[in-house]
Simulated scan of single mutants.
Amino acid sequence: MSTLTEVVDARGGTVRASGHLTAQGADLLRGTVEQLHRSGHARVLLDLREVQGADDAGLHVLRDAARALAADGGELMVRAAPGRPA
């Protein structure tokens, strides 16, 4: 199982992740998404096309992050690989 890594485009408000999404990795992504939102991005794009797998706990953390962003007037957009659920 590969570790989750992220590449951040702070100017564009995009986070590209690769590896395996666990609760710990999703928590890292959530912190990055929240930081991008606080820095002025109403919409943050989370690109998961290079994620090879995810566990339920990791997906739960991302759902919570999307809800928190929406409650604060933001939007988390998720891009997943074709054929994989977002």
Rank of each mutant, 00 (worst) to 15 (best):
L62A: 03
L21F: 02
A86L: 14
R30E: 00
G25T: 00
L28D: 04
V8S: 03
V8R: 10
G13L: 08
V8W: 07
L62R: 01
P82W: 06
G83A: 10
Q24I: 03
G40C: 13
A86N: 13
E75R: 11
H60L: 14
L62K: 00
R43P: 02
G25M: 01
Q35A: 15
L45V: 13
A42F: 06
A66L: 03
V7P: 00
A54S: 09
G13E: 13
E50I: 00
T14E: 12
R63G: 03
H41E: 10
V51T: 00
A57N: 11
A65H: 01
V61D: 15
A70K: 07
A17C: 07
E75F: 08
D72Q: 10
R67V: 08
G53V: 00
H37Q: 15
L36R: 14
L45A: 11
V61F: 13
A70T: 12
M77H: 11
G31V: 00
R84W: 09
V78R: 15
A54G: 04
D55N: 15
H20M: 06
R43S: 15
T5K: 06
V61H: 08
D27T: 12
A68M: 02
D56S: 11
G73C: 12
L45H: 11
R63E: 14
R84L: 10
Q52S: 11
A80E: 12
P85D: 14
G73W: 05
T5Q: 08
A57E: 13
S2P: 14
L28W: 01
P82N: 08
V44F: 06
L29M: 04
T22W: 03
V44R: 12
R11L: 09
R30P: 00
L62G: 01
Q35R: 15
D72F: 01
E34H: 11
